[in-house]
Design a protein around this nucleic acid. Structure first.
Lengths: 245, 245
DNA sequence: ACCTGAACACCGTTCAAGT
DNA sequence: ACCTGAACACCGTTCAAGT
């Protein structure tokens, strides 16, 4: 297994013509790579190979691995802002319409990149008033403006920003984890000797947990869509009561 | 800087007498270590040094690094169950009292181990019906029983479990991130040449983001306690309406 | 039975050297 | 100007060897 064979396995850009490399290109490749192989597989050397280049070449455009990850997260945030530009953000149907749109946009990013979303949710934001997953000055400014220009006070707008962040984080992290389950851990070394586990996520020994056993089906059912929309609706109602009073 | 000096820096158990090592001891040391030095510092070799032992010795008790992390998360979940045993779990004041107690118990774990909580929140649970951060059969069984025995149907109880998980995840992950900010990244190599950044988290160039600039104080204020309690109250009210109808 | 030394494959990162 | 080779310090992990 020489390095030549590996190149064929991943089938990347062969080797990029000298001078083709770019920070943007590297970030795109990194996102693509993580979406396919998972976060832990993203190493400088593997990404270099994927780009048909030695790992050391990346250091001219990326300030080390941490900076690479930061760049990846930034790109996802930018996807949000691009989506925002696509919408004509004029008199979208009130602040509720705006929040609905924003929530769905973030959700779409989380669903498209379930292996990356935890990064967006977990990495330290650049400033203490940037709460994940809305970690962009532009987005937060938009958010505040949308609410304040439609009757929120400074205080209620900020409170709404907090509730909204928590809501997105809680729901989307769980959803992303569920989606990422299939792709993220490609190698699982769990063939432990006597092989007495017939079905991995089936019964461990549920007989002492009657409720869980009985409700297993119900607990496993995927209602992500309806759940998200309903919780969002409830959040908007709550905010409405807050601003009306 | 020989290895001898390093031992003195961390001042661990010197070297444990032969035969002292235990899985439980290793997990305790790992939690202690992460609380102090952060997750990325937790390497097999560093943990071994912390215990006064070579890294390879750990492999007799821990099935590799992944298993170590799994064990650490399990221990935090166990802290929850221990706290549960401390409470006399008889007729605690209705299901609302139970949920209030449970929410606060999870929050306490998150606050005591902010560097570990993201693991609890992010790692794949053992089964699809175990949602972080309540990733324990015992806890989930308790949860369902507390609600069902007090008038919830199977469906409303499971729905409550979902809402409750999302709630905890969203709020506590943000709170843990805020707390972990001081401890987690001990080394930050950001002295970039011309040093034109006077104050790291102060003004990047906020002049084009008037709302954010004006509300900077408000956005940075820490209301974690009140926020958590109020959101919890709202969640309980919502659940109450659900079960009453 | 329990721990260690040596070794292997793999990281991130630096830097002089090639083109 | 842009990329590579070689090197360094550090990982996780295995396994024969020591006590």
């Amino acid at each position: 297994m020489t390095s030549a064979e590996h190149e064929e396995t991943t089938a990347p850009l062969r080797h990029a013509a000298r001078g083709t490399l770019t920070r943007e290109l590297i970030l795109s490749a990194a996102i693509e790579f993580v979406d396919e192989f998972g976060l832990t597989a993203l190493t400088m050397r593997a990404l270099g190979r994927h780009l048909g280049v030695e790992a050391m070449a990346l250091y001219r455009y990326v300030n080390g691995r941490e900076d690479l990850l930061e760049g990846v997260v930034d790109r996802l945030v930018t996807e949000l802002r691009v989506a925002a530009a696509g919408q004509d953000l004029g008199p979208v149907d009130g602040w509720q319409g705006y929040l609905q749109w924003l929530a769905r946009a973030v959700r779409q990013v989380a669903r498209e990149h379930p292996a990356i979303f935890p990064l967006m949710a977990t990495r330290h934001p650049a400033a203490p008033w940037l709460r994940p997953p809305l970690r962009s000055l532009e987005v937060v400014e938009d958010f505040l403006d949308a609410l304040i220009s439609r009757g929120f006070t400074d205080e209620t707008a900020v409170a709404a920003y907090r509730s909204f962040s928590s809501f997105l984080l809680g729901h989307l992290l769980l959803e992303a984890a569920a989606l990422g389950a299939q792709t993220s851990p490609p190698e699982e070394p769990l063939d432990e000797g006597e092989a007495d586990v017939p079905n991995a996520d089936a019964d461990l020994d549920l007989q002492s947990f009657p409720h869980v056993q009985r409700l297993q089906r119900l607990l496993s059912q995927d209602h992500a869509d309806a759940e998200f929309e309903q919780s969002l609706e409830e959040l908007l109602d709550r905010l409405d009561r807050t601003v009306a009073q």
